[in-house]
Design a protein around this nucleic acid. Structure first.
Lengths: 184, 184
DNA sequence: TGTGGCATGTAACTAGTTACATGATTGC
DNA sequence: GCAATCATGTAACTAGTTACATGCCACA
């Protein structure tokens, strides 16, 4: 995690698509891209300053009402070049996607352990909700399947959904293997 | 990432299964649990000291040959209690499993973008290797399917494999949707 | 007039990575 | 004698989280 600073390229990518404020960038992590990266505003605002100092971003001030002003950031030419460099560089495939719950399971050795059923059930409920939510998102945003002009977005939403589907199937299969099987 | 300190519980779990040295703990992250968590020895050795200071671990010294000695750590009673507390506590399901490659895709809007094919192909090769490796692992470690006495381990290996299978299928489907489809 | 959302920032801290550093053992 | 692996540690740094802090705007 140290050192790569991937966040800066995500910000660069987002403001290249359309100029945004820090607040809007923060919100972006609540939506689709939040499936694959997260960041708080306390990390985003300082990063915007750093990127502007690097000359990769510029901002213009906007005023709403009497006083409220926000800074809308856009990528400079060199910022766009940096984004392109990142996109075309080889990405080491992610190896250790961290998952606390799965680790817990690893330490439960006995198939008859009473803790298994509630643990698996709780996770299943959560991931089913997430799966259903993603299904709706996909149906809403891409009602006709792949969009040739927003293809990457379509792909990652599909991937997020399939990932949740796999998670649910795995948990269901695990529950079915518990003593008593699907009947308890 | 700040604050939860999940690593301490993983160490606690590993040494509870069997007493281990710092070196052995480091190696453990190269195997199955590395699919869901990673840690370097520079993080593990200080953590072992902290856990011993907390009274959750104790160590005994072993000597190999003339001088080389290693510290073998075991969980104390309170360490085992802390492990159990962690295992039984509700785990917030993981939300943002970070994946740099997927984020890059998000910023490629045009289905005809020439960068797509090499990007997807490179990833596919990597994940196919990982998938094949996991298949072999599963077949070697659990030739008869689920093991009632190492059930958690079996479950997480299965999950790791299914996850890679999903990843490969998704990448293959993405490649097939590229202009020219499966023929180029 | 008050609540929820818009908007921006800083401070203090923890987790995790990379690099530095040293030495012993095993086997060829 | 040399290389690979076993074995343990520290230092310097970056990334990311949580909490603190402030103020405006729209709407009911």
């Amino acid at each position: 995690m140290a050192q790569r600073n991937i966040l800066q390229f995500i910000i660069l990518g987002l403001v290249t698509d359309q100029p945004r404020t820090g607040y809007e960038l923060t919100k972006a992590f609540d939506n689709d891209i939040g499936e694959f990266w997260s960041a708080q505003h306390s990390q985003i605002y300082p990063q915007l300053k750093t990127l502007e100092a690097k000359g990769w971003l510029t901002h213009t001030e906007e005023i709403t009402g009497e006083k409220l002003n926000r800074k809308r950031y856009a990528a400079t030419k060199s910022g766009k070049a940096a984004l392109n460099d990142w996109l075309t560089a080889a990405s080491e495939p992610v190896s250790g996607a961290k998952d606390e719950f799965v680790l817990k399971l690893y330490f439960i050795h006995d198939q008859t352990d009473a803790r298994l059923k509630p643990m698996l059930t709780t996770q299943l409920i959560w991931h089913e909700q997430r799966r259903d939510h993603l299904r709706k998102q996909l149906a809403t945003k891409f009602p006709n399947g792949a969009d040739a002009l927003d293809f990457g977005h379509f792909l990652i939403l599909e991937h997020a959904l399939h990932r949740e589907e796999e998670y649910c199937q795995w948990l269901q299969a695990a529950l079915a293997q518990l003593p008593g099987g699907m009947t308890n």
